Amino acid sequence: MAMAVGCALLGTFFFVWILRRLTFRDMILVPLVGIMFGGVIGAATTFFAYRADLLQSLGAWTAGDFSGVLRGRYELLWVAGAVTALGYLYADRFTVAGMGRGFAVNLGVRYDRVVNTGLVLAAVITAVVVVTVGQIPFVSLVVPNLVTLALGDNLRHALPATALAGALLVLLCDVAGRLVRFPYEIPVSTVVGVVGSVLFLALLLRGGRRMGLR
């Protein structure tokens, strides 16, 4: 887990370094750049796993599946819970930082410190969840955007709703994966990937129509 957290931090700050050198007309394109960046990392990981004859192990480890969450392993998720609670305490600062560097600095918020704190918290939570459960795609892309559209950008109000909506989405997809081919089970990451990709495309099309109206 320590190695996963370190790699997550390194990858996150490198991704931010890339974003700061790009210009976007619509912020919805940022997740697309993230998907491309993740694809490059995934390709490199697959290459090394292939050379070491570990492709099957890599697939089993990274696929999101609750069947491997057993006593002695799931307790690590409390670390993610504690970090999430810490992030909630910073919610107001994250909201102000999201309005831009100039606005945040004028209000007395240390912009760089707040942004870096948010990146560290997100990286730690992601690493803990991936090590314990595996990768569950699109949840962090789709759910926060949908909640923001409904409730606005105030993170103190949106974070609890985001957590509940994300948990509900994963729960429904997990139940669907257990019932579609009963008594066999489809990994929750597969079901969430299908549902999440449809929702994400809907968000992209909505953003494209909004830019066209402008």
Rank of each mutant, 00 (worst) to 15 (best):
5 V>D: 07
5 V>N: 10
7 C>T: 15
8 A>L: 08
8 A>V: 10
11 G>F: 13
11 G>S: 15
12 T>F: 07
13 F>Y: 15
14 F>G: 13
15 F>Y: 15
17 W>P: 00
18 I>T: 10
19 L>A: 11
19 L>W: 04
19 L>F: 04
22 L>H: 05
23 T>A: 09
25 R>L: 14
26 D>M: 04
28 I>N: 12
28 I>W: 07
30 V>I: 15
30 V>L: 06
30 V>S: 06
38 G>R: 05
40 V>F: 09
41 I>M: 13
42 G>Q: 06
45 T>M: 11
46 T>F: 06
46 T>Q: 08
47 F>I: 11
47 F>T: 11
48 F>Q: 14
49 A>W: 04
50 Y>V: 06
51 R>E: 15
51 R>Y: 14
55 L>Y: 13
56 Q>D: 14
56 Q>C: 06
59 G>E: 08
64 G>T: 10
66 F>H: 03
66 F>E: 12
69 V>T: 13
71 R>F: 08
75 E>N: 13
77 L>Q: 04
78 W>Q: 12
80 A>E: 10
80 A>W: 02
81 G>W: 06
82 A>M: 08
84 T>V: 09
84 T>A: 13
86 L>N: 00
88 Y>N: 02
88 Y>K: 01
88 Y>L: 05
90 Y>H: 03
90 Y>A: 06
92 D>W: 00
93 R>A: 09
94 F>S: 12
94 F>R: 12
94 F>Y: 14
95 T>L: 00
97 A>H: 13
97 A>Y: 09
98 G>I: 06
99 M>L: 14
101 R>P: 12
102 G>R: 14
102 G>A: 12
103 F>Y: 12
104 A>M: 08
105 V>K: 14
105 V>F: 08
106 N>E: 08
107 L>K: 09
109 V>L: 08
110 R>I: 01
112 D>G: 01
112 D>C: 03
114 V>K: 07
116 N>V: 07
116 N>I: 01
119 L>C: 12
121 L>I: 14
124 V>D: 00
125 I>Y: 02
127 A>V: 13
131 V>W: 11
132 T>L: 05
134 G>Y: 05
135 Q>L: 10
137 P>L: 02
142 V>Q: 09
142 V>W: 02
143 V>A: 03
147 V>Q: 04
151 L>H: 03
153 D>I: 00
158 A>H: 05
158 A>I: 01
161 A>Q: 05
162 T>Y: 03
164 L>F: 09
165 A>C: 11
166 G>Y: 09
166 G>C: 04
169 L>K: 06
169 L>Y: 01
169 L>M: 12
170 V>K: 09
172 L>G: 04
174 D>K: 02
174 D>P: 10
176 A>V: 11
176 A>M: 10
178 R>D: 02
180 V>Q: 07
181 R>P: 02
182 F>E: 04
183 P>I: 01
184 Y>P: 00
184 Y>L: 05
189 S>W: 03
192 V>Y: 00
193 G>F: 09
195 V>G: 10
195 V>H: 03
198 V>R: 13
199 L>H: 05
204 L>W: 05
207 G>D: 13
207 G>P: 03
208 G>V: 09
214 R>Q: 05
